[in-house]
């Protein structure tokens, strides 16, 4: 298996002095292409922090991070934004979609923002992704009118839009009922098989974690299992 990314000896401390919270303390982690991994650990253990660093939305206090052979620490804001757009997809727990836009408009955002307009090719891929998510009848729906499970499936479709190598999902099923949660996980598993996209999914749910081939547990600022 090819190495997709590698974190080495990463520290992350929030705040300074008395108020300093040392969340990551020398964490190292390697993810390969086409992996499907769950990220586990007690609340406050630093799962979201780790995903944010992996997503290049935040830099670690120290340590190294390479993805696709590129140094992710040195990059400037524009470089990292461009890199994220091409190589990393996100699914968050809340605030996932742009509320004033339809499902399709949300899905094709990552392509449209790069190309400066919404092309027909992008719309075709967007429709295709939405139907794979079982949302063919919700393509032009305002996202405000979608159910929670539908919203998360739209978010997954959007994360896949630019065919990224890595999708980071922070508790994507956290506020879904178990049936919707299983449905979303099935879709993720299917995409992972078919498109060899690497998924890293943080969760508190053992059942969700067991649907992944690999489980990564964080505790005390390092990977413990």
């Amino acid at each position: 298996m090819t190495v997709l990314l590698e974190l080495r000896d990463v520290f992350k401390t929030y705040g300074t002095g008395e108020a300093a919270t040392r969340v990551l303390r020398g964490l190292s982690l390697q993810l390969d292409g086409a992996e499907m991994a769950a990220l586990l650990g007690p609340s406050g253990s630093g799962k979201s922090t780790l995903l944010t660093i992996l997503g290049t939305l935040m830099k670690p206090t120290s340590g190294s991070y390479t993805m696709l052979g590129q140094d992710m620490i040195a990059g400037g804001d524009n470089e990292l934004t461009e890199f994220r757009n091409r190589h990393i997809g996100f699914v968050f727990q809340f605030h996932n979609l742009l509320p004033d836009f339809t499902a399709l408009e949300n899905v094709i955002f990552p392509t449209a923002v790069r190309e400066g307009r919404e092309t027909n090719a992008a719309r075709m891929r967007g429709r295709d992704l939405l139907s794979r998510m079982g949302l063919s009848d919700r393509i032009n729906f305002p996202t405000a009118n979608l159910s929670g499970g539908q919203k998360q499936r739209v978010a997954v479709a959007r994360a896949l839009m630019n065919r990224p190598e890595l999708v980071l999902a922070d508790e994507p099923t956290g506020n879904l009922d178990s049936a919707s949660a299983i449905q979303v996980m099935d879709l993720i598993a299917q995409i992972n098989r078919e498109e060899e996209t690497t998924f890293l999914i943080s969760t508190h749910d053992e059942k969700i974690a067991n649907l992944c081939r690999r489980q990564i547990v964080v505790g005390d600022g390092v990977v413990t299992g």
Binding site: L57, T81, R84, L98, R158
Partner: peptide, 8 residues
């Protein structure tokens, strides 16, 4: 969200 999705 837009920034995360690659909006500069």
């Amino acid at each position: 969200i837009m920034r995360a999705m690659g909006a500069g």
